[in-house]
Design a protein around this nucleic acid. Sequence first.
DNA 1: ATGCCTCGAGTTCA
DNA 2: CTCGAGGCAT
Length: 782
Amino acid sequence: MTSAPAPAERAADLRRRIEDANRRYHELDAPDITDAEYDALVRELEALEAAHPELVAADSPTRRVGAVPTGRFAPVVHAVPMLSLGNAFEDGEVADFVRRIRERLDREDLVFSAEPKLDGLAISLRYQDGAFVQGATRGDGATGEDVTANLRTISVIPQQLHGSGWPKVLEVRGEVYMARADFERWNEQARLLGGKVLANPRNGAAGSLRQIDPKLTAQRPLSFYAYGVGLVEGGVLPGTHSATLAKLREWGFPVSDLDAVVHGVDGLLGYYRGIGEARDGLPFDIDGVVYKLDDYAGQREMGFVSRAPRWALAHKFPAQEQTTVVESIEVNVGRTGAVTPWALMQPVQVGGVTVTRATLHNADHVARLDVRNGDTVIVRRAGDVIPEVVQVVADRRPPDAAPWTMPTTCPVCGSEVVREEGAAAWRCSGELSCPAQLVQSLFHFASRRAMDIDGLGERYIESLAEFGYLRDVSDLYRLTLDDLLEMKRRADERDDTTPETVKAGKVATKWAENLLEAIDRSRGTTLARFLNALGIQHVGESTAKALAQWFGDLDLVRRLPWPLFKRVPDIGGEVARAIGHFLDQPGNQQVIDRLLERGVRIDDGHPPDPRLGEGLDLATLLVDLEIPKVTPVRAAQLGAAFADAQALLDAPVHNLVTAGLPAETASALAAWLEIDANADLLLRSARAQERLRGMLPARAEQAAGPLEGKTVVLTGTLESMGRDQAKERLEALGAKAAGSVSKKTSFVVAGAEAGSKLTKAEELGVEVWDEVRLLAFLKQHE
DNA sequence: ATGCCTCGAGTTCA
DNA sequence: CTCGAGGCAT
């Protein structure tokens, strides 16, 4: 940090930067700083000028609103300037606003008119003898642009005032905006027919009004709300803002019916919260609410400070969408080696939190958005949670920005980064020798839904792996107290952030003991958890559960050739092969051996599901092997013609033909069988079928649960139990818990603050249970 | 082949 | 939460 510059220098610097940003924004449509930074600069300059009045220059940007018009449209000098409003983000700032008015007017009860602040474009409409004669944008507040022709295409703006009693000359101020639904519809069409896709409703509205050709504007779905008046000549308006709005409504202008008259700070804040809650459901975007002292006499008395009236205030919501600048695009390496790019951005407030990074998913996604280093981007929080880059602002790109490319080597281990045929994801080929993949697989292994080792966070795993205590997951079960303490000592030493020796003693020992106990507790586990923990590709919680349910036994699963896995519903060729591939690696089998040696026990082993018996024959096997040209019909013929796999293997081609196969199929099969690995797989699979058959329980002994065959979805927060627990209890009764609602869903259990899933359920007419109903059901059936 | 419906995997911030 | 892609019914 350099020392603070003298106030005069700083003020000059700020003015220069604000002017520059204004010019770039208004004239070039190409700002080089973010909205948030701009705000910060203006606020700092205001503060500086307030503290040092001698620094206030006549031409200071704080005294003006924007830059001069660009000249594409004729300039219009506003008879009454269109001022901007002071901003407030905090309740305290609203209280200050009210206090200032109360003190200056010496009044106790203050009446305000409050209205939503639409996120659109401010304009002024001039009526002479009731006829619309001219419309202009705000421009810099003093001079705007003549966009009369474009405004005439907006149907809700009256060409002729209704009723009577209007002044001879009347300027109506209001906001042109695009309703959300119209915006969505427009973009849907644009994507379909190749029109201009709009970034957001606000930009859409602004861009539409600045079309040179009014015919283009006419196609855009624009709306308008009136919120005030400018010049009034040859007539009289009511004495309050709220009554004026009522008049405007009479004369044919759309006026928001969310407008309200409220009293004092509490009234304002109550209004703010009410609109805030309604915000998501409104048909248009708003960025806050506006408070205006209702009576004009009071307004006149309050007057103005340089660029804003002292009698009005914009109380803003935290923005849900913002622009910021991408500082760099980095990549992350996941458990499976997937290399995912993400954008590091200048910090920006979005929806009340500071966002600095957002995932870009994969290389295709980056290419589609065409995000580059230095780009200005629009970010939002998807579903109000996860930051997402929506769009690049194309004309704000630095001239030297080059398209982003996926690195060819892993940034962590240097292995080659490869992409599978036709797949979206690029992967680091380093497997477990890549520290990133090792750490992530250990983390997954220990996670709550896998082995559930409490207290083993990513940090510790990183250190343990880095110092060589963990080379694969089985090493977790031979860690000693000394290992942990030494690791911690070495890590602390290296980071040298910890005050010397403070943590080396009792505290560290306690931590290590707790961790060892957690690891020990995890030794007793279920087959489903264990299989999930192994981190086999395509096998997550749900598939692991299915494998456990159908096969019941680890030793059995370990020895099955891949085609057998296809007997489980929802497991197809791809997943089956992934499991087989995992089990074929001797290293993986050794890890499993070591886990068992070091005390991991599977406590819920049981015989395989009897329903497996239906698919344990040669015909099924031939289908599952995915032999070219061998369809289920042909497989059935072969199953009938041959006693077993060996017999099929020994048969010459003409025997296949006599078995009823078309020559083409027969030769394809024969060619397939020629390959040793295939023949071997066939025989091993046949033997596995036999072994499995021998393990099947005599007859179905399952007592069908009351929810057998039902699919349930849980959403929201339950009071009496966690969602996981509710899920387990429902599953115990035979239900299948799914993650998303569809028409196949039997019912949705909705707790407090249920979100989109509940909405979806209502849309589809799916039955919804509340917590009371769930508890009653569980009580009755458990 | 096409169109649901799921699941897996990666991810953010406080 | 979102995207990609696997499974399966049509």
